[in-house]
């Protein structure tokens, strides 16, 4: 329900600056994911938006209203924490009702809302249990339920899935995606270090590094048109192959990037590069080949299905046309068209 604007926001602890001037607009009803390596400031940024940390300089607007000095509970936010942060001494019902009760909601309204959101998350049979009697996945649902009950304008998630095991993580991810569909006008901000979560959930992704925004865009934009070498390397799995030296120079750039799925194995001698397979990983649906073509590190080639190429074999590789990413020595994409094409 809210449109959030950050204008040149910074955050310092003493002499250490963690957030170094961020301008960002998060649209109403959007699912925005902050992603980046650990220590990039993504959690701090979320906490600045929530109000749990104070902004050092710059302005934060919710629907055009400056909220720098508004306490968290008056911002109309709800937050889901990494460790769930359920009140251990309250049962599920009380956990979900606590915020509304403090807000002075009437008993009838409160009861109705709690039961409604419990039903939505299918935890209505757990209402009188204590958190310690719940499984990890159930706790996470209660934490989400508690947030929904508050009927927030902005929904904040701080790495909510990182304490769950792999299977549960996928299931809960789906749940959150569904939630976003159901609550179309609630703005959601989600922090994660996992780019798969980011790609699958986000309307738009904000890639952060070292307290600065590297790129903001839809998952497809980030994947297809990374603004710089960092984003190119961070988004996508397996990581984009980067080639330097003569490989890059041949294409008129200082670093050449190519995704593993954009490389084809071609008949001997027909490819741009030739190398020996040093290692193969069979993931069932895909095959990752690690090929030493004389670059610093072997490049990864992704082949669908069962391709049986023995380790030590020499193969010829050809990147797909138009799928080469060229970066100059500052890490920016090279704009000039490639002479060869």
């Amino acid at each position: 329900m809210a449109n959030i604007q950050l204008r040149n926001v910074t955050k310092s602890y003493g002499s250490v600056t963690v957030i170094k001037g961020i301008d960002l607009e998060i649209r109403r009803g959007e699912f925005m994911v902050f992603v980046g390596p650990s220590g990039c400031g993504k959690s701090t940024l979320l906490r600045l938006i929530s109000g749990l940390e104070s902004i050092s300089t710059g302005d934060l607007y919710f629907d055009g209203e400056r909220v720098n000095n508004v306490i968290p509970s008056k911002r109309g936010i709800a937050m889901v924490f990494q460790s769930y942060a359920l009140y251990p001494h309250m049962n599920v019902y009380e956990n979900m009702a606590f915020g509304m009760k403090l807000g002075g909601a009437g008993k009838g309204e409160l009861d109705q809302r709690v039961r409604q959101s419990a039903k939505l998350l299918q935890i209505d049979h757990l209402l009188d249990r204590l958190p310690k009697q719940l499984s990890g996945g159930q706790r996470q649902r209660v934490a989400i339920g508690r947030a929904i009950t508050r009927d927030p304008r902005v929904f904040l998630f701080d790495e909510p899935l990182s304490n769950l095991d792999a299977a549960l993580r996928v299931a809960t991810r789906l749940e959150i995606a569904k939630l976003h569909h159901d609550m179309r006008d609630v703005t959601m901000i989600y922090v994660t270090h996992d780019q798969v979560e980011a790609m699958t959930l986000a309307d738009r992704i904000c890639v952060l590094r070292d307290g600065r925004v590297e790129q903001v865009g839809t998952p497809t934009e980030l994947y297809e048109r990374p603004d710089n070498i960092f984003v190119a390397g961070f988004i996508g799995s397996p990581k984009m192959n980067f080639l330097e030296g003569e490989f890059a120079a041949a294409q008129g750039c200082s670093t050449l990037g190519v995704r593993s799925e954009h490389i084809d194995i071609v008949p001997q001698g027909a490819g741009m590069w030739t190398g020996t397979v040093v290692h193969a990983e069979d993931l069932g649906s895909d095959n990752y080949l690690f090929v030493d073509i004389g670059a610093k590190e072997p490049i990864i080639v992704r082949q669908p299905g069962k391709v049986t190429i023995p380790e030590g074999a020499t193969i010829s590789l050809q990147p797909r046309p138009g799928m080469l990413y060229r970066f100059d020595d500052t890490g920016r994409p090279v704009q000039a068209p490639l002479a060869a094409e």
Binding site: S50, S73, F81, F98, L102, G103
Partner: peptide
């Protein structure tokens, strides 16, 4: 005591 519990309470308006 865990920090996040306190923060959850702050967000809840405590």
């Amino acid at each position: 005591l865990p920090v996040e519990i306190e923060e959850a309470a702050i967000v809840d308006g405590a």
